[in-house]
Design a protein around this nucleic acid. Structure first.
Length: 496
RNA sequence: GGUUGGGUGGCCGAGUGGCUAGGCAAAGGUCUGCAAAACCUUGUACGGCGGUUCGAAUCCGCUCCCAACCUCCA
């Protein structure tokens, strides 16, 4: 499998050629959501980005094991309350009911955005044993200490034994961290402020609790990812992904735990997606600078002038590289909506094109195939979807010109046309994960197609009779019903 | 304060030391009964100040501004 794939590794801060540990296979771990409240759009951006990465790796022929966890324990609020318990108290539900409810909601939203499910979706609460085992290993290796039923990772000991490794991902230095530390809960139990809990003693009123060698407690927030990535992908694996805001401390601590337990840092390539902004600021659950996907779909928000469909939003995401911040604005969404429409119209037009009968390609046929290969090549460059989309739009112009007669189909051989259709479809729908929302399915759509054909035939007759009043009346009435009629060389077409 | 990454034409957003991404908007044209769509053409942008270079938006230095992380977040 020839691969020219390069990707930007956060660990080295360089683009590197991608070489999987095992030829032909890729292990991919992505930090999933903490399911204590509804997903918001920023989450969606990250998971759509990794969905495209997952899809592209598969399209290149790799067998990918994609692990994306669900965090349902250990993630505390500022007050030290577990997020699950807090959600449960507020909604008068069992903690696991909360987790289930928002997991379901999360899955629905991923489906809405046409993001494929991962190969394995492990839950933190389902891997308590593995996490306890990992704590034991870390203790055994001398990188942690127990105080009053809690176990803390000893960053200093880790650094001394591993050549000051802590901070390798985020570029942080331990002395700076210490200088900046503040009063945190259980601070007095820690030897150093930069130490972090890998197992926490449960207070009497703490609902989520498990027995452990150190008494009843629960795992620290960062531990589940270390334990589950190790379990399903091995002590060393290929790619670890997540949002930029997880780089520190979450991912940094993950590496430390992995090294602490198995002497390996886990992933060899770290990929981080950048934040979704609104009004120039990070879209964030905690400070309310947010718009829910539902609001975006319905348009019920002061931030948008109308609703935008999931595929318009996905297309909008494609136009920004995953490592760049993406600023959401109504104007940009408007542009994306039109661009997406033009792209899908062209796809429709392409499907209706028929080869001119030439056995040989002319310039146009060669340009089509070259442009398509260029688009794929852009994906090889750190999954550069904006450039790939740019190349695709150059093809859109050609497709439209073929349809409109400005370019001749005699320049495209039948073989080329067929493989072009197939390869473009793969890129658009299998790799980029778009869906043609206008193309309905089923009996209703079929009936509508037939009805529209009748109406357009009637109008065509009126036009032939130069009965402009009638033809315009039909067009206006359809327009009022939300259907746009476009007169072309070979008759009229319509779109909703 | 420290760490990381940014500031690109009306808006969004890629990008390489020289061969002017792309989308949207705008202008002109072709086509059309009209309209829409489509096609063709047009904009010569790169925070500021220096420096390196034959040549820099792209490399270096300084400076201004912005964001993220350092506390829960994708």
């Amino acid at each position: 499998m020839p691969s020219n794939l390069t990707l930007y590794n956060s660990l080295t801060r360089r683009k590197e050629s991608f070489k999987p540990l095992v030829e032909g296979h890729v292990g991919l771990y992505v930090c999933g959501p903490t399911v204590y409240n509804p997903v918001h759009l920023g989450n969606c951006r990250t998971f759509v980005s990794f969905d495209i990465i997952y899809r592209y790796l598969m399209a290149k022929g790799y067998r990918v094991r994609y692990v994306r966890n669900i965090t349902d324990v250990g993630h505390l609020t500022d007050d030290g309350e577990d997020r699950m318990s807090k959600g449960a108290r507020l909604e008068q539900l069992e903690p696991m009911e909360v987790a289930q409810k928002f997991s379901n909601q999360f899955h629905d939203m991923m489906r809405t955005f046409n993001a494929l499910p991962p190969s394995i979706e492990p839950r933190a609460t389902g891997h308590i044993i593995e996490q306890i085992e990992m704590v034991r290993e870390i203790l055994k290796n001398g990188y942690a200490y127990e105080v009053n039923g809690s176990v803390y990772f000893d960053v200093e000991a880790y650094n001394n034994a591993n050549d000051d490794r802590y901070g390798e991902l985020s570029g942080r230095r331990i002395d700076e961290l210490m200088a900046e530390s503040r009063e945190l809960k259980a601070q007095d139990e820690k030897r150093n402020p930069s130490d972090f809990a890998i197992w926490m003693r449960a207070s009497d009123d703490h609902i989520l609790r498990w027995d452990s060698p150190w008494g009843p407690g629960f795992p620290g927030w960062h531990l589940e990812c270390s334990a589950m990535s190790t379990k399903y992908l091995g002590e060393q694996f290929d790619i670890h992904g997540g949002g930029n805001d997880l780089k520190f401390p979450h991912h940094e601590n993950e590496i430390a735990q992995n090294v602490g337990a198995c002497h390996h840092g886990g992933a060899r390539y770290w990929l981080h997606t950048n934040m979704l902004l609104m009004n120039g600021k990070k879209m964030s659950k905690s400070d309310g600078n947010t718009i829910t996907p539902e609001q975006l779909f319905s348009g019920e928000s002061k931030h948008v002038s109308e609703g935008y469909s999931p595929m318009v939003i996905r297309f909008f995401m494609l136009q920004t590289h995953y490592r760049s911040t993406m600023d959401l604005s109504d104007e940009a969404l408007q542009a994306a909506k039109k661009g997406y429409g033009r792209l899908m119209d062209a796809w429709q037009s392409l499907s209706e094109l028929e080869a001119g009968g030439s056995a040989q390609n002319g310039t146009v046929g060669k340009e089509l195939m070259a442009g398509l290969e260029a688009a794929y090549a852009e994906m090889d460059d750190d999954f550069n979807t904006p450039k790939a989309v740019a190349r695709i739009f150059e093809l859109v112009t050609r497709i439209n010109a073929l349809k409109g007669g400005q370019l001749s189909l005699d320049e495209v051989s039948a073989d080329t046309l067929a493989s072009f259709k197939e390869r473009l479809g793969t890129l658009l729908f299998d790799v980029l994960g778009l869906r043609d929302e206008a193309a309905g399915a089923g009996a209703e759509q079929e009936a509508l197609d037939k009805v529209m054909q009748i109406v357009l035939d009637l109008r065509q007759q009126a036009r032939a009779d130069k009965d402009w009043a009638l033809s315009d009346k039909l067009r206006d009435a359809l327009s009022a019903a939300g259907i746009t009629v476009k007169d072309g060389k070979d008759g009229a077409s319509w779109s909703i």
